[in-house]
Amino acid sequence: MRRRTFRTADGQRVEGVWRHIFTRNGDTYYLADLIVYADGAIDCGVGGLTDVAGLRGYLQSGRVATTLQDGARGSAHDVAGWRFAEPDAWIDPDMLLGEVADELDFLNGRPDSSERCLVAVQTYLADPTEDNRLAVRDRYLAIPEHLRIYALGDMDARDWPLRVLVTPVDAHLDADPDEEVVTADVLATAIEYFRDRSLAAAVRETRTPADGAEHAQAATLTIYRGRQEHPGTEVLQNGWRATITINGRDYPSVTHAYWALSTSDPGWHDRIAAAPKGDDAAALAEQAPRRAGWPAARLAVMAVLLRAKYLQHPQMAQTLLATGDARIIYADLGSAYWVASRNQGTNWIGRLLEVIRSELAVAEAGIPLPATHDASPSASP
């Protein structure tokens, strides 16, 4: 899973993840998407939203299928059809439900079953009592069976060190007589693996590249219509009323300026610039002729307009700077070229905001760099 998506509920963005599943209707299995949302809502591909209990019911009834019947019909989004021949399913209902529980933990910033198991391992290493070993065993068995080999993120070791820890000394792994016996030496090897792993993790956490952290330290910021996750960041929307001056001409917002400059017709330019709201400016621009070469030029135009906004409005510049090194996802309405929409979108506005934030940081830090950008595009209406 962990293919990201979202839905909008009561004007709020609700994060989600999805995976493929099969739903069953009569003797036909349909390839569908199982979508799990952070608020616990689940789309099983059978119409409407349910929850974990509802998903369990669909699994029990066979409406959501983890077992495929030999010879049954299959269909994929109305583009392909077949009959199953010797189908081999990898998971059962309990595994799927465990996977969903992990995804809900992930979406809500909680440790999932694998992470909880590794916490128990650390407790055992600090105090290797039988009770703590049994706690590791319980946490290990709580990981969905098909995901256990990924718990350590080490496909060479797979889950062998965990299996050793949860097996009593002198017993066979997994209580299988065909598996190796866990001797004191085998247990010591597994423990050494975890101690080396902990040491390596501690080194990684304390080692910082010379020019700063490799990954964002601040939480991702999503900008969209309606109430913001972080109050005050609504000013970062392009349609926010913030007059910018370009080539001596005032525009009520970045959106107004962008669409007005997209046409070389003076009459349309003035009508768009005078529109009551940004949405009105965009609607008018759809009727106006585009400048020749606009698709190739639009990214540079947007960059100049955004730069002008934050250079001409210092308080808004401080709001942008206050986002730190957060990744900015611009999820407002608009073309997928500019925004990050459902499972697609190049998010150019978000990326430009990050660049301009860095330029503002250069000025704030007093780093002596030449001015390479002019906040006034040469295009004139």
Rank of each mutant, 00 (worst) to 15 (best):
residue 5 T to Q: 05
residue 8 T to R: 13
residue 18 W to H: 11
residue 20 H to S: 11
residue 28 T to D: 06
residue 29 Y to H: 09
residue 32 A to V: 08
residue 38 A to M: 08
residue 38 A to D: 05
residue 38 A to F: 07
residue 43 D to L: 05
residue 44 C to N: 10
residue 47 G to D: 05
residue 53 A to Q: 10
residue 58 Y to D: 12
residue 58 Y to C: 12
residue 58 Y to M: 13
residue 62 G to R: 00
residue 70 D to Q: 03
residue 70 D to E: 09
residue 78 D to F: 08
residue 83 R to F: 13
residue 91 I to R: 07
residue 92 D to Q: 08
residue 93 P to R: 03
residue 100 V to P: 01
residue 103 E to R: 11
residue 106 F to D: 09
residue 107 L to N: 05
residue 107 L to A: 06
residue 111 P to C: 04
residue 112 D to L: 00
residue 116 R to V: 12
residue 118 L to N: 01
residue 122 Q to S: 14
residue 125 L to T: 04
residue 127 D to T: 14
residue 128 P to F: 02
residue 139 R to F: 03
residue 144 P to G: 06
residue 147 L to Y: 09
residue 148 R to W: 05
residue 161 P to L: 02
residue 167 T to P: 04
residue 168 P to W: 07
residue 170 D to Y: 12
residue 174 D to Q: 11
residue 174 D to I: 00
residue 177 P to V: 03
residue 177 P to C: 04
residue 179 E to W: 06
residue 180 E to H: 11
residue 182 V to S: 04
residue 186 V to R: 08
residue 190 A to R: 01
residue 195 R to V: 15
residue 196 D to V: 08
residue 197 R to N: 07
residue 217 Q to L: 15
residue 218 A to F: 09
residue 224 Y to Q: 14
residue 225 R to L: 05
residue 226 G to D: 06
residue 228 Q to W: 05
residue 230 H to D: 07
residue 233 T to C: 12
residue 237 Q to R: 15
residue 239 G to K: 03
residue 265 D to T: 05
residue 267 G to K: 09
residue 268 W to F: 10
residue 270 D to L: 05
residue 284 L to M: 10
residue 303 A to H: 13
residue 307 R to H: 12
residue 308 A to W: 01
residue 309 K to Y: 01
residue 312 Q to N: 07
residue 312 Q to P: 02
residue 320 L to V: 08
residue 328 I to L: 08
residue 338 W to F: 13
residue 345 G to L: 06
residue 349 I to M: 11
residue 351 R to W: 11
residue 353 L to P: 01
residue 354 E to V: 09
residue 356 I to A: 01
residue 360 L to I: 11
residue 366 G to F: 01
residue 372 T to Q: 13
residue 376 S to M: 02
residue 377 P to Y: 01
residue 377 P to W: 04
residue 379 A to Y: 11
residue 380 S to Y: 02
residue 381 P to R: 03
